[in-house]
């Protein structure tokens, strides 16, 4: 059943696959994001409570939700590499960590920029913002651990273990931060998750989320190719690649 997948365990095949997929992802993500952002900024109706400032959610929500999904994808890759000893899964996880960190940073900055007009301060210790901040720390830890090893293969395995430890901890951290938040502030009004959003507001958001997914895919492919090259520097196919690209 999974036989068709086996050739892709070979670095060369995966590299070629990534190269063929990359243009599709890039073009699709750029067009989707352009449509989504123009729609969000220029055409979506205004929110009667928050005014135009609500347009920030069109970046904030995709970045925040997908920052978590990227971590889950990394954890899946780490698990795959542990269970099946698939080195390429480590390369994929390593490729995704900086993307996750950037998404978390975007979610934090846009959260703060949205909080200033709404709450009156740049930062509140809101449960979501706090757990997003902790998620950023987890990402930074994984990246730092990855950079600390000279040997890429060892780095991938060590970072994989840390990722899995983190994935066990994330629900606990999330739960504890939420509990801590209600303890100290009473129920905060989370204005970011409006239960009922009108369709003409929701549609551009969905388009943007799709655009972000495609963009994450494209950047992952770019970084995945780098990781594969770095791990296979001595292979003949990399030599051919160099001969072809750097004359």
């Amino acid at each position: 059943m999974w036989k068709w997948l086996h050739p892709y365990a070979k670095p060369e095949r995966s590299y070629q696959l990534a190269s063929t997929l990359l243009p599709w992802f890039s073009v699709l993500s750029i067009t989707t994001l352009l449509i989504g952002i123009i729609w969000a900024l220029g055409f979506a109706p205004v929110d009667y409570q928050q005014g135009e400032s609500y347009r920030i959610i069109y970046v904030h929500v995709p970045a925040a939700t997908l920052s978590m999904s990227v971590y889950m994808a990394m954890a899946t890759a780490a698990l795959v590499s542990m269970v099946w000893q698939l080195k390429l899964a480590d390369a994929a996880a390593a490729a995704m960590a900086p993307i996750g960190a950037v998404l978390t940073t975007i979610a934090l900055i846009t959260g703060a920029a949205w909080g200033k007009p709404m709450w009156g301060t740049w930062w509140v210790w809101d449960a979501r913002l706090t757990s997003e901040l902790i998620l950023l720390f987890l990402y930074l830890g994984i990246i730092a651990l990855h950079n600390a090893f000279d040997d890429k293969v060892l780095a991938g395995r060590a970072a994989g273990i840390l990722t899995l430890v983190g994935v066990v901890n994330i629900p606990i951290i999330k739960y504890s931060v939420e509990w801590w938040n209600t303890l100290h502030q009473g129920a905060t009004i989370s204005k970011l998750d409006k239960p009922s959003m009108s369709t003409d507001m929701l549609l551009p958001l969905l388009v943007n989320i799709l655009g972000f997914v495609l963009m994450i895919g494209a950047i992952t492919l770019i970084r995945f190719r780098n990781e594969v090259i770095a791990r296979n520097a001595m292979r003949p196919w990399v030599k051919e690649l160099i001969a072809k690209e750097l004359k």
Binding site: L138, L140, A144, F149, I173
Partner: peptide, 30 residues
């Protein structure tokens, strides 16, 4: 866990705190 991951690294000290402190947060909170 953090020490085991960083024991082979020359300057593991600061890295260790970066890896471990976020995981300590639930204990601290409760």
């Amino acid at each position: 866990i953090g020490v085991a991951l960083t024991v082979g690294i020359k300057k593991g000290g600061v890295l260790l705190s970066l890896l471990i402190l976020p995981l300590y947060i639930p204990v601290l909170i409760f």
